[in-house]
Design a protein around this nucleic acid. Structure first.
Lengths: 192, 192
DNA sequence: GTCTATATGTAGATAGAC
DNA sequence: GTCTATCTACATATAGAC
């Protein structure tokens, strides 16, 4: 047995990460997290002072998770155009979760924008991580409007998830994923 | 004095409509609506049996509101392409609200998708209203993929609002609004 | 480090006087 | 139709025994 402390801390973060995604932050209670982990409610306060601190830990965890995902894209190809295409695969890899709960990054940002300026700013870091990496890929390809293209690609992915989730339309994900890949090829292969 | 009943009912709906947008549905309490209307909490139950019934009334109210907005687009031009361009003006007309709280339709849909399948389905009606009208415009212009174009335009607008709200970026709204208009012209003016 | 009992506030909802 | 008082459930958070 011994020290299970950090193990429990991570188990709380894992469960909260999933529940915040599936139910939203405000609609997830300590009881929900307790049920998912079999760790008693009162115990949470040994690891976190407030619910917001759990949220902050979840966002930090997502930053690490998505950084790892980006590293996988980096390792997947040494052509920046192909790395961008790899990145867009999240749409279909996670299509079932997207249909049920939307995008974890976008929906959390939208929720926090309405209620908590400080945590909204914290959650924004994930978007910044994505945007900066996407911009770097377009930069490598020599495009002078790399920053704008990065924002546009982010917006495309967010729009697809919101609409696909609203209409519960799997085929829309597949079709628009193909169109996003076409758009990337158009932007990165065109001669002008 | 006399019967102020329906007046009060509408005042509740008006206040709830705004608060559900600014704070989210679950984060808006009866107390919040009471404060905004000066109608006591307990009184709400004379008009609505549950909080969900208020939400349903708000969605119905939005359906009426957005139908009126669409009628204005109809009245604005007898060219379907120009009506589509008029429709996209919501982006800049409401830019301050979008930066603060996102899109009222998209954020409500995203919230309800996580917690309440039945009301999520109800809220979807607003998206359907938009999609069907957009499709009708593309149909008039003789495009055979009108349904897909309607979904794509919806997704573009949703993506722009999510990203603009996340980054609090007014300029992004303006730039991407211009690009959406270019896209509409490209799709509806191209000869092929 | 772990867990139970409990404090404190507020949510949605109800009952009944006026 | 209107309003107050109140109910029950559950939220986050704390205290303190083990």
């Amino acid at each position: 047995m011994g020290r299970k402390g950090e193990g429990n801390r991570q188990r709380i973060i894992d469960a909260a990460d999933l529940l915040f995604y599936q139910r939203g932050y405000s609609q997830t209670s300590f009881q929900d997290i307790s049920d998912a982990t079999d760790i008693p409610r009162g115990n949470f306060y040994y690891y976190f002072k407030t619910k917001e601190e759990i949220l902050e830990a979840v966002v930090n965890y997502r930053l690490a998770t998505f950084s790892a995902m980006i590293s996988q894209c980096e390792a997947g190809s040494d052509d920046a155009r192909e790395r961008l295409l790899l990145f867009t695969n999240i749409l279909e890899v996670n299509e079932n979760e997207i249909l049920r709960s939307g995008c974890p990054v976008g929906t959390l940002s939208s929720e926090l924008a309405k209620t908590d300026t400080e945590m909204h700013n914290k959650s924004k870091q994930v978007f910044i991580l994505f945007r900066d990496w996407l911009k770097a890929q377009f930069d490598v390809l020599g495009l002078d409007n790399a920053g704008e293209l990065a924002m546009d690609l982010l917006a495309k992915l967010q729009g697809i998830t919101v609409v696909a989730c609203a209409f519960k339309d799997v085929d829309y994900i597949k079709r628009s994923h193909a169109e996003v890949k076409d758009w990337i090829n158009l932007k990165t292969l065109k001669q002008s």
